[in-house]
Simulated assay, not measured.
Amino acid sequence: MKTLFQSFKTKILLLSLTFLATVTLFAQEPFEDSVVITKTDNNLQWGPCPEFMPAGCGIAVLHGDPGKKNADIFFKVPANTQIPNHKHTSAERMVLVSGELEVTYEGEDSQVLKEGTYAYGPAQKPHSAKCGDSPCVLFIAFEEPVDAFAVEE
């Protein structure tokens, strides 16, 4: 009798776990859609940069909400453009998509980014940049909401 009761108890436990796993699986939110975007995508919506940035500068949101954490953007500037000294609340993870960009972080030597170069910029660290002879497009992943603040030199 004891063995039959243990077997019944085991079956009830397994059925309960299966039910809970099924409910949990279906209660989860559906997966979000994947995203594939190129720098020349016709659906990109380029918006303005902060006022202190140079004329012709643009920002396009690729993924996320720029007012919230973890947004990805394209940042573009015309050829031969100087990007003034500025900083961000967030760290930046960047890949230069096109052009050549010389970046200088406060207290560091300048670095030249070429197409495909990855760069990391610490939060709150002032930096400036200069785009070379062709337009620059930079992919930037922000950990915190997207922002930029001018820094007096």
Rank of each mutant, 00 (worst) to 15 (best):
P30N: 12
A79R: 07
S34K: 10
G116T: 02
T38W: 04
F139L: 02
G67D: 14
A119N: 10
K125G: 02
K114Q: 11
K69Q: 10
P48H: 06
P78T: 01
P122M: 05
S128H: 15
V61Y: 05
L138H: 02
Y105M: 12
T24G: 09
S134F: 13
V137D: 05
V61G: 06
L20F: 15
E102F: 00
G132N: 07
A60Q: 03
V61H: 01
E102H: 00
T81W: 04
N80V: 06
S134Y: 13
A119H: 11
F26D: 07
T104F: 06
T40I: 06
E106I: 11
L62V: 08
F74H: 06
D133T: 15
T117K: 12
V77F: 13
Q45W: 01
V35K: 00
L101G: 13
D133I: 10
M94Q: 15
I73Y: 01
F52H: 10
M94A: 12
S34C: 09
L138T: 01
I73E: 00
E100K: 03
H86Y: 10
P54G: 10
H88Y: 09
D109H: 08
D65C: 04
K87G: 01
A79V: 06
D72K: 02
P84M: 08
V103I: 15
G132P: 06
K87W: 08
N70W: 03
E106G: 11
K69S: 15
F75T: 00
Q111G: 05
E108N: 11
P122Q: 10
K87I: 03
F31C: 10
A21D: 11
K76M: 08
H63V: 07
V97I: 15
K76H: 07
P122I: 01
F52C: 05
Y118I: 08
V137M: 11
K125D: 08
F75E: 00
G67Q: 13
K68T: 05
E29Y: 09
S98A: 13
N42G: 08
G116K: 00
F139Q: 00
P84C: 03
H63G: 03
C136E: 07
A123W: 11
A79L: 01
Q124D: 15
H88Q: 02
P48K: 15
H63S: 14
A91M: 12
V95W: 00
V95A: 00
G58D: 03
T22F: 14
Q124P: 11
L96T: 05
P135D: 15
N80E: 10
D109M: 08
K76P: 04
H63P: 02
F74K: 03
M53L: 15
P48F: 06
S90T: 06
W46M: 03
P66L: 03
